Simulated scan of single mutants.
Amino acid sequence: MTHLWRKKTRVWLAGLACLLLVGCATRVIYYWLDSAIVWQLDDYFSLDRDQKTLLDTEVKGLMAWHRQHELPIYARDLDALAKAVASPMTPAQVTLHLDRTQASLARTLENAIPRTVRLARTLTDAQVARFMADRVKRQQERQHDFLTESKIGMQQEFQDKLRERLVFWIGKVKPAQEPLIAQWAEWQYEMMPPWLEFQGAWTRELDRLMKQRQSPDFGKELTRLLQQGDGLMDGRFTGYTDQSRQRTIQWLSALSQSMDLSQRAHLYTLLKEYAEDFETMTRSR
Results as ranks from 00 to 15, higher is better:
134 D>L: 14
144 H>K: 06
145 D>M: 10
63 M>E: 02
129 A>S: 11
154 M>C: 04
80 A>C: 02
110 E>G: 05
131 F>L: 15
105 L>W: 12
150 S>M: 00
67 R>A: 11
139 Q>G: 04
97 H>M: 06
107 R>T: 06
121 R>P: 07
52 K>M: 09
100 R>Q: 15
71 L>F: 10
65 W>G: 00
83 K>F: 00
171 G>Y: 05
62 L>C: 03
77 D>Q: 11
57 T>V: 07
136 V>D: 04
80 A>P: 00
95 T>W: 12
170 I>W: 02
111 N>E: 10
115 R>I: 15
135 R>C: 07
119 L>V: 05
55 L>C: 05
79 D>Y: 07
92 A>W: 15
163 R>W: 07
109 L>A: 08
63 M>A: 01
179 P>G: 06
134 D>G: 13
72 P>E: 06
70 E>V: 11
72 P>Q: 06
159 Q>K: 09
52 K>D: 06
59 V>Y: 09
131 F>D: 11
171 G>F: 05
173 V>Y: 12
148 T>P: 03
161 K>E: 15
111 N>A: 07
158 F>Q: 06
178 E>S: 06
118 R>C: 12
176 A>V: 15
146 F>Y: 07
76 R>M: 10
120 A>H: 01
121 R>W: 08
155 Q>L: 13
120 A>W: 01
63 M>C: 01
159 Q>I: 06
57 T>D: 10
162 L>T: 11
64 A>Y: 06
161 K>S: 12
168 F>C: 06
86 A>Q: 00
129 A>Y: 04
71 L>P: 08
102 Q>T: 12
100 R>K: 14
134 D>Y: 14
155 Q>C: 12
90 T>C: 03
74 Y>L: 11
121 R>T: 08
135 R>E: 04
73 I>D: 10
168 F>Y: 14
176 A>G: 15
96 L>E: 11
120 A>S: 03
156 Q>V: 05
89 M>W: 03
132 M>H: 09
128 V>W: 07
130 R>S: 14
107 R>G: 01
67 R>G: 05
161 K>R: 14
148 T>G: 04
110 E>C: 04
62 L>G: 04
59 V>F: 07
146 F>I: 09
150 S>A: 01
133 A>Y: 05
75 A>Y: 00
123 L>Q: 00
103 A>N: 02
96 L>N: 12
105 L>R: 10
119 L>Y: 08
126 A>S: 15
179 P>K: 01
66 H>D: 00
58 E>P: 14
92 A>M: 12
129 A>L: 09
64 A>P: 04
164 E>R: 09
167 V>R: 09
70 E>H: 09
152 I>D: 11
115 R>K: 15
101 T>M: 14
143 Q>E: 13
57 T>W: 02
107 R>W: 01
135 R>W: 01
166 L>S: 08
156 Q>D: 13
107 R>P: 02
154 M>D: 04
130 R>Q: 15
150 S>T: 01
53 T>E: 03
118 R>T: 14
76 R>C: 10
158 F>P: 05
114 P>N: 12
170 I>Q: 07
133 A>E: 12
59 V>E: 09
56 D>L: 13
70 E>L: 15
131 F>S: 12
148 T>R: 05
